[in-house]
């Protein structure tokens, strides 16, 4: 029994390390593919459109409701010690530093990591990846590099738009429901917001975009056989991308705002 338990732990540890090794190797191969020719501009353009542009509605709606709820919460919390006036500045800081990039990243993970993993997984299962190789085209350069680069560049833009919409959500609730003066709300938002609050969120967005596309491509390329294999790859991509976003968010926050 003890031997079985130790054997089980050993096998799990080996599998975990092997998976980690494959992931890191995939990361290096992706970076090498991004910085080598040929660059598939058409694929890149298509990825910018699907990852960035088509994610705008979902990211925008998420930000709008989050900003609105945040204003209500801060108002309710602040009223306990007569600090209702901080609503505009806390909404702005909360959205730009944390909620904009994290919730935007999670929405992109749900929308993009899944679709990338399903698309590339289906290509693998139907031998389209093998066909690419026989047509002298490196799948890492043709499929992975454009998607990862597009996500890294467009998610910060999505975050910037999300930040603005989130702050606007807070403004709507603040002025419509909580009785703030419109000019004072805007003045408070601008006065207390620093450039680094916004920039740090955009850097987070770039990291999250990179991770989402990387994970989607990784699971797609390593998809198992059949519909079940593609389904499993899609699920794993969304779960891993979400966990990676939250873990890296903590590390980036630690790096940017402590010490």
């Amino acid at each position: 029994m003890l031997t079985g338990l130790v054997g089980g732990i050993g096998r799990s540890t080996l599998a975990l390390l092997a998976g980690l090794g494959r992931g890191v190797l995939f990361l290096f191969r992706t970076i090498a593919a991004i910085f080598s020719l040929p660059f598939y501009i058409r694929e890149f353009g298509h990825a910018v459109l699907t990852i960035g542009y088509f994610s705008l509605p979902v990211v925008g709606l998420t930000a709008l409701f989050t900003g609105a709820a945040l204003a209500l919460q801060i108002f309710a919390g602040g009223s306990r010690f007569q600090a209702e006036a901080v609503v505009p500045s806390i909404v702005a800081i909360g959205m730009t530093r944390e909620l904009g990039p994290v919730l935007g990243g999670l929405m992109v993970a749900a929308r993009v990591a899944s679709s990338i993993a399903a698309e590339i997984g289906t290509m693998k299962v139907t031998e389209q990846i093998d066909a690419l190789v026989t047509l002298s085209t490196d799948p890492m350069r043709y499929l992975t590099a454009p998607r990862v680069l597009a996500a890294t560049l467009t998610v910060p833009v999505l975050v910037a738009v999300g930040d603005s919409i989130g702050i606007f959500g807070g403004y709507l609730v603040g002025t419509g429901r909580l009785g703030f003066n419109t000019a004072a709300y805007l003045q408070n938002t601008v006065d207390f917001l620093e450039t680094w609050d916004i920039l740090s969120g955009l850097v987070k967005g770039a990291v999250f975009g990179f991770l989402v596309a990387l994970v989607g491509c990784y699971y797609g390329m390593n998809s198992g056989r059949g519909a079940q294999g593609v389904g499993r790859a899609t699920k794993s991509a969304v779960v891993s991308a979400s966990v990676l976003i939250l873990a890296s968010n903590y590390m980036l926050t630690e790096l940017f705002f402590t010490g």
């Binding site: 290509m123 139907t126 031998e127 389209q128 093998d130 066909a131 026989t134 002298s136």
Partner: peptide, 20 residues
């Protein structure tokens, strides 16, 4: 690899045509 594969053509079992 690239110049080697340039000499080959392959018909896959399911066609393996690119959907997009």
């Amino acid at each position: 690899r690239e110049s080697f594969l340039a000499r080959f053509g392959m018909l896959f079992q399911g066609g393996a045509l690119f959907d997009s």
